[in-house]
Design a protein around this nucleic acid. Sequence first.
DNA 1: TGAATAATAGAGTGGCTGCTCTGTTAATGT
DNA 2: ACATTAACAGAGCAGCCACTCTATTATTCA
Lengths: 200, 200
Amino acid sequence: MNPEVHARRRAAIVEAAAAEFATHGVDGTSTAAVCRRAGIGSGTLFHYFATKRELFHAVFADDLPRTARRCAEALAAPDPDTGLDLLTGHLIDELTDPLAPGLASAALLQANRDPEFARLLTALDAQLQEALTTLLARLAERPGRTLPLPAPSAARWIRNLIDAAHLTADAAERDITTAELRLILSWLTGRREMPPGESP
Amino acid sequence: MNPEVHARRRAAIVEAAAAEFATHGVDGTSTAAVCRRAGIGSGTLFHYFATKRELFHAVFADDLPRTARRCAEALAAPDPDTGLDLLTGHLIDELTDPLAPGLASAALLQANRDPEFARLLTALDAQLQEALTTLLARLAERPGRTLPLPAPSAARWIRNLIDAAHLTADAAERDITTAELRLILSWLTGRREMPPGESP
DNA sequence: TGAATAATAGAGTGGCTGCTCTGTTAATGT
DNA sequence: ACATTAACAGAGCAGCCACTCTATTATTCA
């Protein structure tokens, strides 16, 4: 089969699986449910993925190259502040994905008992951590700019904060949440002025 | 049977269940595994709890009165800062529980599909949210004390941050994490000075 | 064209699960 | 002492699950 077609069909299965995993968790999702949502037979599912576990991994593994590209773009920005805004902007945009909270909690649970999956998550986190740390270190070198925490710690808390926002994502209050999140991030990155449009 | 004995045996089962749920999740935990760990037969388990779901609820429901007591103590403190330290201190102490990350992620997943459990978690969160908001509002009334966020928002971010710390709890870096957490909390509560023992 | 392989469907299977049922022992109240 | 109820064990059951097997159709390529 044309490899492009193969990739597209595989991606469609992964998408259906992501929706099921997000709402029912890994163990709560039956392969039959994924097949129904994807409109395929079970034989087809196991033709593309050897096990349910491998299917779950695929949901997250597909994010690796995208994250890498975003990190590279942010690091290539002329200004570290611009790069940070770019990177955190992407992360905040992902808060609008209604599947995000469910997937995040399913992933955390799986990481507790699936070392291979834990390594996958670690790789994803490490990409972000490294890019954020580099950008923050560039900021800290600027005269008159001091960070309240060392660059690696600040980077970790930026990730923590965004993870936390994911977990409490409430559609009704998302605008407030993201505005406050930006305010806290501006403190973490040592900015004196308020973000544009804010006047508390 | 003596009701005290009944309560003690019930608690022992809940404890065994918590350990299983934390490491394998709700769906990944079989009632047989809980029975083995608790050293009882399946008949006994279902004599104390009608369903597995009810058993899982019990793991968290037992925290309700304890949280209520702590909130009352914090609100009764003479100084809002002292009350906040008391409350956040308890929350930070819970980071040392090795079961916490697993239970937290299991709870998040369950809240997605079990409305009754979601209500239970909401009740737990509401207790904390209310107490924190009250204490922060008292702080904001003080002359010369300004909070970077409104009291309810600040309260929510305090909970968010601690939840996030739970999820990323790493035994090796816990001291660093809690120290940094305290620093961020001192900013969120509008304190000017650094926490004692810190000199960045 | 024809052979080889990929793609797909879906019935079937062995194993596990939550829970029930029955029987037995211990505690309690009168 | 005795009746009643609580506490407990564990065999058994109906249902579900991940995955396999077989058969059929589509695609590729020499």
